[in-house]
Each structure stands twice: as C-alpha cells, then as structure tokens.
C-alpha cells in the first residue's frame, strides 16, 4: 500500500508534520476523485466536510471526553451529517452545484465561527486539544486514512457500485433505463466522499490540536485537493494519489517560501490540462505506455478524452 510508503518515509524523513499533511491531502484528493471522478459533481466547497470533521473530533473530545481515536468516528459522523443536510444540492448540476457547495461551506464556517455560538463551538476563539495530542497515534491514523481512502477508490474501480456510477456519469438517462437507481448511487458516492474528507479533517485536527476555525475552513484546502486530483487525473485509482504526492512535494520545495510561484504554477497547469490534457497526468502515462494500458483496460474519462487531445504536453 502507498500507506506503507509513508511509514517508511517517516523513519528517515524528519518533518512528520509535512508527511501528515501530504497524507491528508492524498485522502482529500481521493475524496474529490470519488465524487467528481465517479459522478461528475465538482464540489468547490469540499473543505466544508473537512472543517466539519475537524470540529466533529474536537467537540467530541472536549465535551464527550472520548479518546481522539474514537473522536475520528465523530469526525466522519459530522461530515456525513453535513452531507446529508446538503442532499438537496445533488439536484443541481455542474456550475450550480459547484458554487452552491462553495456557498454551503462558507455558510458552515460562518456558523461555526460565530461568536453567538461560542458556548458550543468555541466560536472564533479556536480549539485547544493539547490534552489529546499524540503525534504517533495521529500519524498512525493518517496512515490508516491513506489506506482506507485508497481502498475505497480501489473498491469503486472494481465493484458494481463503481460501474454503476460510471454508467451514470457518462449518461444518466440510459443508466436509469438500465435499472440503475441513479439518485441512490449518487447519494452513496456523496456520503463516501464526505466521510473521507471528515476523516481527513479529524486527523488534521488531532495532529494539529491547536487551531482556529479559519484554518480548517480555509478555501485553499478545497483548491489544493481539486488541483491535486485533476493533476493526477480523476476516475483512476492512483492519479489523485500521485497528484497529491508530487504536487504537494513541489509545493513544499517551491511554494513554501514563495507560494505565489506555486499558485502560478498550478494555475497555469490547470489551464494547460484543461486545454491539452483533460484526462490529467494519469492519461499521459496511459498514453505513453500503451502496453501497460492494454494490460489493464481502464474505462473512465482518461482514454475517452484522448481523441480530443491536440497539444504535445500537459
């Protein structure tokens, strides 16, 4: 598992925080993969689930006094509850969904950070979980997060559910005719994706343990997750994972001291990808390795998009 890679890396790479962030982003990119890659819904407000997860863990630890490991379950629950509340968004399409989800995430942030609710959420005053802090345990949680999120995507790639989702994505009406319960399947993908972000948020909260609401509802978290997923190529198993590892690595090498350069780089990358390589980096690899592609015939958007490819690079 790629999770093993992180365990090995931890042994000789001293900045554990960076590894944890990489794992968190890997899970988020895979979460975007589940909802966007398999259903076509692109949630710009994906960070809402992340923040809900962070607060799910934090508040359960603070008020229910559960161990942080159990708090992760509450993180998932909180994100799933928010997703359930937002079911109606799935009636929307394309841009409406994308921007409505962004508005929903912003609204959730405004509510949680509102001083009127400080008695419950600690409002803008921030969370301090130092008593529950445990670097090693939360690192293990992050490794598990990577394993589970990879597992979910592998499952979707191979299961009937994933097949159904891809059928819906390419043509919802025909899928409906073929007897697929479109609404139900989409709902499952939505909840799965939310749960993944919730677990990522919970893990982040546990590892960071002192944070203000702005840090876990930062819209650049959605942006990074989407960019990483698109860069690697959605609809594939390892595209988003590759995107997260490579781009977050680049971010730490280049962007950390001059984030504008990084923003410029990925902004340009996105533009080039859309124009020249809509299937993401994954499709490039597939194109360059036809033998390998024959070995594993991959349905999904990558190969289908290839005929439209005109440019030489991505």
């Amino acid at each position: 598992m790629p999770a093993a890679g992180f365990v090995v890396a931890n042994a000789f790479y001293p900045n554990q925080q960076e590894l944890v962030m990489m794992m968190v982003y890997l899970a988020l990119a895979q979460g975007i993969n589940v909802i966007y890659g398999f259903t076509g819904y692109l949630p710009f407000g994906y960070v809402g689930f992340f923040g809900a997860g962070a607060y799910g863990l934090a508040l359960s630890v603070l008020y229910l006094h559960v161990p942080a490991g159990v708090g992760l379950l509450f993180a998932v629950l909180a994100a799933v509850a928010v997703a359930a509340l937002l079911f109606p968004l799935l009636r929307l399409e394309g841009v409406y969904f994308a921007i409505a989800s962004l508005a929903a995430a912003e609204a959730l942030y405004e509510v949680i950070s509102n001083p009127s609710l400080a008695a419950v959420t600690k409002g803008p005053y921030g969370i301090n979980l130092v008593s529950a802090y445990n670097a090693n345990a939360s690192f293990v949680a992050a490794v598990a997060l990577v394993a589970v999120s990879m597992g979910i995507v592998v499952y979707l790639r191979t299961s009937r559910l994933g097949l159904a989702l891809r059928a819906i994505r390419s043509d919802a009406v025909s899928a409906e005719f073929a007897g697929i319960n479109v609404v139900q399947r989409r709902t499952v993908a939505w909840l799965l994706s939310a749960a993944m972000a919730g677990a990522a948020g919970g893990t982040f909260a546990w590892y960071t343990s002192t944070f203000y609401p702005g840090a876990v509802f930062d819209s650049s978290i959605s942006i990074f997750a989407i960019v990483f997923a698109l860069f690697g190529g959605v609809g594939t198993t390892w595209g988003p994972a590759l995107g997260a590892v490579v781009l977050f690595g680049v971010y730490n090498a280049v962007g950390i001291s001059q984030p504008q350069y990084f923003q410029l780089i990925y902004g340009v990358l996105i533009v080039l990808l859309v124009l020249f390589l809509p299937g993401g980096l994954g499709s490039l690899v597939q194109r360059l390795a036809p033998r390998w592609r024959r070995l594993r015939r991959t349905p999904g958007r990558g190969p289908e998009a290839l005929p439209g490819v005109g440019g030489p690079d991505g």
Partner: peptide, 24 residues
C-alpha cells in the same frame, strides 16, 4: 495490483526526496 502499490510507494518517496533538500 502490486504494480500500483509499488509505483505509488515509490512516488511517495520521490515526492519526499524533493522536499528533503535544504535540510542542514
């Protein structure tokens, strides 16, 4: 499947080695 896993693990390390520069 193993092929994926090895590739991903390798890439993780690659990504990390990019970030490891500059430590003193």
């Amino acid at each position: 499947m193993n092929r994926y896993l090895v590739a991903t693990a390798g890439l993780s390390l690659l990504g990390l080695s990019v970030t490891a520069c500059g430590a003193s």
